[in-house]
């Protein structure tokens, strides 16, 4: 009955449902992580190395810590890092794309910078920046912020070029409107949805890269239960058959990244009139 109803929904309704459901699920994940206090992460030597059971759904680690609470805490930490990094990246992208629209010379400089940043493998660049910052939380956030802007800047720049050359903008200019007026009334309204969706879609990348760089040992400090830390610790215990140390935390990370991806893609479908009625 329920399934029949879902299948019968129109394309637009399905898009909106996906947005709401993924948003709610993300909210639950993050809120449950915030709710976990320090005392629940404590060491409990009496239940060391337990396989998943009803009492400990994700099992426990070699110090008896419950993996479910650690995982949720880790996911929340990733979310925090992701939001900081994605936000700063979006701001950088906006500034650069505005800069590119000033004149031809500035545009060339920005394009060159984009190419420069894309010409070094992403992980290597992250590693380099995080090394330069001395590692830790600060290093990760700065690294992520300074490596994720190029792709979004490209999109914004292309969008701006298109709007700038549109007829109604040249009419505005001929009518004597100032640059600022045109930017406020013609360009920014076009950029706003792109900016917001770009921000949401930067999230999955930022989170995955955070986990990767933390896993490699450059990111968050080992005392924080970030997913990357949990996974790199789990490597020491894999050969003893403690599979649950790696499987569930990774799966939760995947779930969060996938939810963000679904949210972003559906938001784009919802906001973009060209894709509003047809799946991509």
């Amino acid at each position: 009955m329920m399934a029949g109803k879902i299948l019968k929904m129109g394309f637009r309704q399905r898009t909106i449902t996906s947005i709401v459901v993924s948003f709610l699920l993300l909210l639950i994940m993050v809120l449950s992580g915030l709710w976990i206090g320090e005392e629940q992460l404590e060491i409990q030597p009496e239940d060391m190395n337990e396989a998943p059971s009803l009492h400990h759904l994700f099992g426990t680690d070699w110090l008896g810590r419950d993996m479910l609470t650690r995982t949720f805490k880790g996911v929340t930490i990733s979310f925090g890092v992701g939001i900081l990094a994605a936000f700063s990246s979006t701001v950088i992208a906006l500034v650069f794309s505005l800069l590119a629209s000033v004149n031809g010379k500035a545009d060339r400089v920005v394009t060159w910078l984009i190419d420069l940043f894309l010409s070094v493998p992403h992980i290597v660049l992250l590693l380099l920046i995080s090394f330069a910052m001395g590692g830790g939380f600060q290093g990760v956030v700065v690294g992520l912020a300074f490596t994720h802007w190029p792709s979004l800047t490209r999109v914004l720049r292309a969008e701006m070029l298109q709007v700038k050359n549109a007829e109604y903008v040249s009419v505005s200019r001929k009518l004597g409107k100032s640059r600022l007026w045109i930017a406020r009334h013609h360009i920014i309204p076009h950029l706003r949805p792109q900016l917001f969706i770009g921000f949401v879609l930067l999230f999955p990348h930022a989170i995955l890269h955070e986990a990767a760089i933390t896993f490699l040992g450059f990111g968050l400090p080992p005392e924080q239960p970030a997913i990357g830390i949990i996974l790199s610790e789990s490597m020491l215990y894999l050969s003893t058959g403690m599979w649950w140390l790696a499987v569930f935390p990774g799966l939760s990370l995947l779930l969060m990244v996938a939810l963000f991806d679904i949210l972003g893609r559906n938001l784009r479908k919802w906001a973009d009139p060209f894709h509003g009625q047809k799946g991509v």
Binding site: P204, L208, A211, A212, F215, I227, L231, S234, M235, L238, S239, G241, W243, A246, V247, G250, L253, L254, V257, A258, D261
Partner: peptide, 23 residues
Amino acid sequence: CFTLASTPAFWLGLLLLMLFSVW
């Protein structure tokens, strides 16, 4: 493909390692 795009590569490596080497 969409699932893979959200999968941390190193986690996939860990899974394969557990499956084929340990288990």
